[in-house]
Simulated assay, not measured.
Amino acid sequence: MNPRRPAAANPPYRLPPGLLSLRHRGGWFALGVLALIVASFWSLDLQWRQFLSWEAAQSMGRFVGEFFPPDTSPAFLQRVATGAWETLAMSALGTGLAALAGLALAVPASRLHDGDAAWARGPTRWLLNALRSIPELVWAALLLISAGLGPFAGTLALALHTAGVLGRLFAEAIENAPPGPGDALRQQGVGRARVFLYATLPQVLPQLLSYTLYRWENNIRAAAVLGVVGAGGLGQLLAFHMGLFQMGKTATILAAMLLLVALVDGASHASRRWLTR
């Protein structure tokens, strides 16, 4: 062995770029977000001194004290239970319709493989952006004109907004699916629809279900708020009794909302854990 010949060595290790290096995009992005937050504090007229004053605390304490005792009369509890069931039904039906519409729009909004022309991808994504950019309250206010007061308008409002959200999430999941199984079927001459049903959809189905359950949790809260504009459910009861300053009844409705959200959150969390095993 030649003593002058250097021994084989590993290639030199390169340290990652510094936090403020020009190549560290994440660091500069985080710094920009931090600067935006600081600028927001300076630009907004935040009355911290008034908010943290003793007078404000006393006023808030008196207001909270008016909620006690809650109204627990059997007749009113029956009305609250009916409103809670209506809110739950609105959220479940709206989410189900949104999942079906979102999946139908996600397929043309995604590029299924490298050679896919995906001519409808751009227009469909614009449609999804339009659906989710309009809040549920605005959709409900528009649909109340045609569907009238009640849960029907609230259900359609939830379905339209959530279809835009789920459609975009579904499209991203479909595009990020492993391409191997689909490519193998395409090489055997299998058609586009069958490739999607037998290769792409089985891979992303647990993720799609997880997205749908998460949006159902959000729609429970949204359905309760939609009742404020007359779309039925607990929100309509809340707007009515709070407008009349009947704080005991308002406290009972708020407690029912908290209980309903907690139950749905727990069931949804358990379902997502079961799906991802």
Rank of each mutant, 00 (worst) to 15 (best):
L259S: 00
L208Q: 04
Y198E: 12
L226V: 00
T276C: 10
S43H: 14
P181K: 09
N176M: 12
Q78P: 00
Q188G: 13
S73D: 12
L93R: 10
R62N: 03
L260H: 00
D71E: 11
P12E: 10
R215A: 03
A39W: 06
A35Y: 05
Q246T: 12
A7Q: 12
A222Q: 11
G150S: 14
N10P: 08
T250N: 01
M60W: 15
A30D: 01
M242I: 03
Y211A: 07
Q236P: 00
F152R: 06
L166T: 01
L100K: 12
L226W: 02
A222S: 15
W48S: 07
G248R: 08
G232I: 04
A98R: 07
L36M: 07
Q187A: 15
S268T: 03
G167M: 00
L156F: 15
F152Y: 08
V190F: 06
F152A: 10
V107Q: 13
P16R: 10
F170Q: 05
F41Y: 09
A81W: 13
L31I: 13
Q246H: 10
L237H: 01
A57I: 09
T124W: 11
L263C: 04
G233P: 02
A157M: 06
G26I: 07
L197T: 11
A184G: 10
A120Y: 11
A231F: 05
G191M: 13
T212N: 06
R272H: 05
T155W: 07
M1G: 09
L127E: 06
L77H: 02
L160C: 11
R132Q: 07
F68D: 09
E175M: 04
M60H: 06
L234N: 02
L127Y: 11
S91R: 15
D71K: 06
E172R: 12
I134H: 01
N219D: 03
G232H: 01
A262N: 00
A130M: 08
L160G: 08
E175Q: 07
Q47T: 11
S43M: 09
G102K: 00
G148M: 10
W54L: 14
M247P: 11
R272D: 02
I145V: 12
F41M: 14
T72Y: 05
R25E: 04
P69N: 05
L88A: 14
P3F: 13
D45I: 12
L238I: 10
F41E: 11
Q236A: 01
Q78V: 10
P11N: 09
L112C: 12
T212S: 09
G266N: 03
T124G: 05
I37P: 04
G102P: 06
L112T: 13
G233Q: 04
D116Q: 14
F76V: 10
S110L: 09
A224F: 08
L197E: 07
R192Q: 06
T87M: 15
P151W: 06
R186L: 06
E172I: 05
I174N: 13
L22G: 02
L127N: 02
L143C: 06
H241Q: 03
W28E: 05
A256T: 02
N218Y: 07
F240S: 05
G150I: 10
S40R: 09
A163D: 08
A8E: 14
